[in-house]
């Protein structure tokens, strides 16, 4: 069969000639698909790095002369810097996704894009304390003169944001022992609760959003439990929150040898970040 194939493929048989075209078509499709899968994986990696970077930066103690919002804003700026690498990648991918091609390869683009939106929305939250809007996300994915690299979908936007809640949970809990951490945790708690409520009405329209909602619920419960524990314990002391902060901070520094254990525990939490169900 193989010999007939090769000898016929260059012959004039119209049937085989059209299969020649199909081969070129399919090869082109598969090659582009592979390239986009690889690019999507790179983007996922870069996004994860940006998220870790943001977590590290906010955990670092703030300079004595800067308040908490400034500290977070500075972290967000560095996060944006990192995310620019991803935006450059998307700019390079633009020709691969031109015209009707974006929708053909949307399934290959989606995973990396959602991860990017997760990282971007985390930086945005640290910067502004709000949820990034759909148009703001699209704005990061266009050329300087306003040509979109590709049209952002509501589905990718919402699924990316849905992952943000997991990062916020980590952010709230790992910062809970820091100065002002309890106040921040309760802010985050309220924010995540609002996100969950907003997304709830959209679940019927977005495939996979329901699954992510249950992860969001778990994250929310973890923050709530932490907030509860802190509240109950602090109620035993009739002291203003700043003094409690100082007591906690002092004991942390006094027991630096001991903290290895607890730090190890917290590290688990970071290592588990890949897994959206990351155990606490």
């Amino acid at each position: 069969m193989a010999t007939t194939t090769t000898s016929l493929s260059s012959s004039s048989s119209p049937v085989l000639q059209s299969f020649d075209t199909f081969r070129a078509d399919l090869d082109d499709y598969n090659d582009r698909r592979e390239r986009l899968i690889k690019a999507s994986r790179d983007i996922t990696n870069l996004s994860k790095k940006a998220i870790f970077l943001l977590h590290r930066l906010v955990q670092n103690p703030a300079d004595a002369n800067e308040d908490q919002p400034t500290h977070y804003k500075k972290a967000a700026q560095q996060g944006y810097e990192k995310l620019r690498e991803i935006q450059d990648l998307y700019a390079k991918l633009q020709p691969e996704l031109e015209g009707d091609k974006y929708w053909r390869y949307q399934r290959q683009v989606s995973p990396g894009l959602q991860e990017y939106i997760e990282a971007l929305s985390f930086a945005h939250y640290l910067d502004h304390g709000t949820l990034i809007t759909f148009d703001e996300v699209q704005k990061t994915l266009m050329t300087a003169d306003g040509v979109k690299f590709f049209p952002l979908t509501v589905s990718d936007y919402l699924l990316g944001l849905s992952d943000l809640t997991g990062e916020l949970m980590r952010f709230a809990i790992s910062g809970i022992a820091n100065k002002g951490g309890r106040q921040k945790a309760s802010e985050v708690c309220a924010f995540v609760r609002r996100c969950k409520a907003d997304f709830e009405g959209l679940t019927p329209y977005i495939r996979d959003l329901r699954k992510k909602q249950s992860v969001t619920t778990q994250s929310l419960e973890k923050i709530e439990d932490a907030a509860y524990a802190i509240f109950v314990r602090s109620s035993e002391y009739d002291l203003p929150p700043e003094i409690l902060d100082d007591i906690v901070a002092q004991s942390v520094s006094n027991y630096s040898s001991h903290t290895y254990e607890t730090r190890g525990h917290r590290r688990d939490l970071h290592a588990g970040s890949d897994d959206e169900n990351g155990a606490i």
Binding site: F19, F22, L26, N30
Partner: peptide
């Protein structure tokens, strides 16, 4: 058979 020869030319995944 001719169709089959055609299909054999494709790199199917």
């Amino acid at each position: 058979k001719e169709l089959f020869a055609g299909f054999s030319m494709l790199n199917l995944k």
